[in-house]
Write a protein that binds this DNA or RNA. Structure first.
Length: 752
DNA sequence: CGCTCGGCCTAA
DNA sequence: TTAGTTAGGCCGAGCG
């Protein structure tokens, strides 16, 4: 479940990112509009419930344990009987992992000892939960077959490798008898480089369990001998593929896709009492890996099952100034909401509190006199609600571990919830050009001198992946256009964005030094092409858009970085600049080989170019009458290693310059701020930003810290004027702690 | 004072 | 066990 793995919330930088335990000493929020809405909601809820004969109160008297009978609506929908012989089982898979377990009778694969079993958790259209055990899939990798290797050698190779791996084991807790399940010969080509479209013999080596892949690879690479073949090193291929991923690729399963188990092709585990089932799911089934059907996420298979999402947040009674510790500080409140995927409102809002608590609008409250009962009861609540997804702000790093540790400290029995806690390119070497007798028109040389064969000779793997991604995005965009349901629209928009990001990231991982598919030639060639294209664009634009060609001004490329160029076209209005910019982009594109093209993106007016990777400007994209925003790149205003005083000052000065067109006003403002600083009229919190400062302030805890910090800041500050450049104004502050150097400099020539 | 280096953060 | 990249600006520290 990806949602659970991630840290929630915005990045705030540094160690203080970790969620703080909250103190319950003060209530700072005043009644808000949100609360009024909740009150309204509550009234409606009351009315609805009284019709069903529900209790009207929302605060449950102290001491009551949560009971599943409290509200039957909270339970997952009843699961109708399932007949594997006549019923097809279809569910959306939301989590996938594997474990080592005993083979199940009637399922394929090894029978003896522990075998790897893939486990999928999912939800049906009717909201019933499914745990599906998938049998018979084993991990494998490849090595090139040595010269002279024939089928008759397979058995000997397998036997030798098997005993080598067995001998290599330090202990054999699982009593593994067989390590190498199979070896067969297949025709394959290495993805790296072009080999003249001639697949070679590779040995596909299937192991009994995933953790045997690494030792087998190591033994083969170190030098392996069998039969009459000399000791040699075998290079392993695809030995670094995670078992889950291997399974997903081979069975066409992708994240959160829909899975179909055809009738008659799976078994239902029924006897709960005999311990057959291992999960709390309503249906627990076994299936052979080659019998499950995975549906590509297109059309109706893009829908989302009615997943149950629990979000929660805990409050601890911390000691003053100390981060709460589960061994000491009690959990005093757990607020939980549960919502079904696709519904607008949560159908459960529950607050579990220690001691009494005022009524909270919109929520039901359970009060406890003992913390132990609170935790026990909440665990029971979660089991009843049976969420598919558990989420919350940083719960993975704070709330969940805290609850588990606290429950252990208090010796709460049955707290341990059954959380799923989730336990190329052508695929050329220069020396090969002669060998494979490639004609010059068969390959191209990139700006970095690397050679790639053209797709007419052999289409690479990466172009294939990219084409698939881009065409899938095209389809998603087309569906988005005709879709009217706003919710489905969101899903489709997310899908097309994800596909775009995936396509862009293809380049990224070829540059990774340690990764699944490193290829420096590709990443360097990509950047090389980028540089070349910028250069070409500059030549083209500056040669065509000139006064002598009848244009208003000589165009000038003012700035460019990696994949973009800023052109000063010299026309009077933003609208004219947009028109000319679009025309120029199309014209330049016509000089590039498709699908490469130059796109018009935006107009900056005015544009303050401070340095490479540092500029600001008013950003116009669609409407020439109004700028969308003041865009700042790389400047103090967007950097987090400056105190707010600096960012605010620079921001105001930029507004003066760009929006008000008043550079003198900017200087005046900067002088005023410096003067305020000198006269100690600046709020110290404007200077507090660095981690060190924040920490120091916490240590002092209280006003005393502010006084001390203020004294030190004023004591250490100094100002300097630059005599050489009247437009450069500089003041440095507190060199010891806060990086608070103010700098404001511009040159009229830099303003476009 | 000027230079280089490492640390940090951003652009793309 | 776990991992996208390079280019580049600015600051502070250390050195001669």
């Amino acid at each position: 479940m990806e949602f659970k793995k991630r840290n929630g919330g915005p990045a705030m930088g540094g160690a203080s990112q970790a969620k703080k335990g909250k103190m319950n000493t003060e209530w700072e929020d005043s009644p808000s509009q949100f609360e009024e809405e909740l009150a309204l909601f509550d009234e409606m809820e009351m009315e609805a419930e009284s019709g069903e004969g529900q209790a009207g109160h929302d605060v449950i008297p102290e001491g009551d344990l949560f009971s599943a009978d409290l509200n039957p609506r909270w339970k997952r929908p009843h699961a109708p009987p399932l007949q594997p012989i006549s019923d097809t089982l279809i569910f959306q898979q939301i989590d996938l992992d594997y474990y080592l377990g005993s083979a199940v009778a009637g399922m394929p694969g090894q029978v003896q000892g522990k075998v790897p079993i893939v486990r999928m958790f999912g939800v049906t259209d009717s909201g019933n939960s499914v745990c599906c055990h998938v049998h018979g899939f084993a991990p494998y990798f490849y090595v090139p077959a040595p010269n002279g290797f024939i089928n008759a050698h397979l058995a000997e190779f397998q036997r030798e490798l098997n005993s080598a791996v067995l001998k290599d084991m330090r202990s054999n807790k699982d009593n593994i008898a067989v390590t190498v399940l199979a070896v067969d010969i297949t025709k394959k080509e290495s993805m790296y480089h072009y080999h003249g479209n001639k697949p070679l013999d590779f040995l596909r080596i299937t192991m009994a369990m995933p953790r045997l892949i690494a030792p087998a690879k190591r033994l083969l690479e170190q030098g392996f001998k069998f039969a009459n073949f000399a000791t040699q090193s075998y290079q392993a291929y695809e030995a670094n593929i995670d078992f889950e991923i291997r399974f997903m690729v081979d069975s066409d399963v992708v994240g959160c896709c829909w899975i179909e188990l055809p009738k008659g092709k799976y078994r239902l585990r029924e006897e709960r009492s005999e311990g057959q089932t291992v999960s709390l799911c309503q249906y627990e089934v076994d299936v052979a890996w080659n019998h499950l059907v995975s549906h590509p996420a297109e059309e109706e298979w893009q829908r989302i099952a009615p997943l149950r999402v629990l979000s929660f947040d805990i409050e601890c009674a911390g000691r003053k100034g100390v981060f709460p510790e589960p061994e000491i500080d009690p959990v005093i409140q757990i607020a939980s909401m549960v919502q079904r995927q696709g519904e607008k409102e949560p159908f459960i809002r529950m607050v579990f509190t220690l001691q009494s608590c005022a009524s909270i609008v919109g929520s039901q409250i359970l009060c406890f006199t003992q913390e132990k009962l609170l935790l026990q009861s909440w665990a029971e609540f979660v089991r009843t609600v049976d969420p598919d997804i558990i989420t919350g702000y940083n719960i993975q790093n704070f709330d969940l571990p805290y609850l588990l540790n606290r429950a252990a400290t208090l010796k709460v029995t049955c707290f341990l919830l059954r959380f799923i806690y989730f336990d190329l390119f052508v695929c050329v070497c220069k020396s090969q050009v002669d060998k494979l007798s490639l004609a010059p028109e068969d390959f191209i040389k990139t700006p970095t001198g690397d050679l790639f064969v053209k797709s007419s000779v052999r289409k690479g793997l990466l172009p294939e992946i990219l084409e698939n991604l881009l065409s899938a995005r095209k389809r998603a965009k087309a569906e988005l256009k005709k879709e009217t349901d706003p919710f489905k629209k969101q899903v489709l928009d997310g899908r097309q964005l994800a596909l775009k990001i995936s396509a862009n990231s293809v380049y990224g991982f070829t540059g990774a030094q340690v990764g699944k598919l490193p290829c420096l030639e590709i990443s360097q060639s990509v950047t090389g092409f980028g540089r070349q294209m910028i250069e070409q664009t500059k030549q083209l634009v500056e040669s065509r858009y000139t006064i002598s060609n009848g244009y208003q001004a000589d165009a000038k490329v003012v700035y460019g970085d990696t994949d973009s160029v800023m052109v000063k076209l010299g026309v009077a209005t933003v609208q004219e600049t947009m028109n000319l910019g679009k025309e120029a982009a199309d014209w330049v594109s016509s000089h590039f080989v498709p699908p490469i093209k130059l796109e018009f993106e935006k107009v900056y007016y005015p544009y303050l170019l401070i340095n490479k990777k540092r500029y600001a400007g008013l950003y116009f994209s669609s409407n020439a009458e109004h700028h969308d925003k003041m865009d700042c790149k790389g400047i103090e205003t967007v950097r987090r290693d400056n105190c707010p005083l600096v960012a605010n000052l620079i921001n105001t000065c930029l507004q003066n310059i760009l929006i008000d067109r008043d550079p003198d006003g900017a200087v005046a403002h900067a002088k005023e701020v410096i003067s305020d600083l000198l006269c100690n009229r600046i709020d110290i919190s404007q200077l507090v930003i660095t981690k060190e400062l924040t920490r120091t302030a916490q240590e002092y805890a209280g006003k005393q810290a502010h006084v001390e910090l203020a004294e030190r800041c004023v004591f250490t500050h100094s100002t300097t004027w630059s005599s050489s450049c009247p437009n450069l104004y500089c003041a440095s502050l507190n060199p010891y702690w806060a990086r608070a150097k103010l700098r404001l400099a511009w040159n009229e020539n830099d303003l476009y």
